[in-house]
Design a binder for these strands. Structure first.
Length: 144
DNA sequence: TACCACGTAAAT
DNA sequence: ATTTACGTGGTA
């Protein structure tokens, strides 16, 4: 079963492999769902796996589905960290200066928990973006 | 990689 | 109904 390559043409060799076991398959389910449930990408990956007789990426089991629904929810500030306890906007950060169009809380008041990525929980947003991009690297341009 | 813009969920 | 600000895409 040839692993799909090409597409964006920027992928390191080992960026994408089919899941080796059920745990990894579920991890991929999480990533896929986080990216987009009904995208052509999802259908493509699903088809690839079925064709290869590997772990299917769907349907999601009930508990995993519940987990994913939780992840989709907008997170709330913890209310306990230093930034959360701060009452005043600094008035000088980019978010304060760009309040009208930016719609972001003052940087000094941004909850420590919310600074972390919702995608993987504990990685910087940029890393999260990279993780998402990696999913697309292996795909042909017709899919991306 | 920080900043900007925007849709919209959630709070008020 | 209005306000706040999360999540995400785009860009300089």
């Amino acid at each position: 079963m040839p692993r799909p390559k090409g597409g964006m043409g920027l992928a390191p060799e080992n960026v994408y492999e089919f899941p080796a076991d059920m745990e990894e398959a579920q991890s991929l389910q999480l990533q896929r769902k986080c990216i987009e449930t009904t995208s052509p990408l999802s259908k493509y990956i699903e088809a690839e796996h079925q064709e290869a007789g590997l772990f299917s990426l769907s349907p999601l089991d009930a508990s995993l589905e519940a987990t994913l629904d939780l992840q989709k929810k907008r997170r709330k500030k913890c209310g306990a960290c230093t930034p959360c306890l701060r009452k005043e906007n600094c008035g000088t950060c980019a978010n304060c200066l760009n309040r009208k169009t930016g719609k972001q809380i003052c940087k000094l008041r941004k909850c420590e928990q919310l600074k972390k990525s919702a995608f993987h929980g504990n990685v910087h947003r940029t890393s999260s973006r990279e993780a998402q991009k990696q999913f697309f690297f292996c795909l042909p341009e017709s899919v991306c």
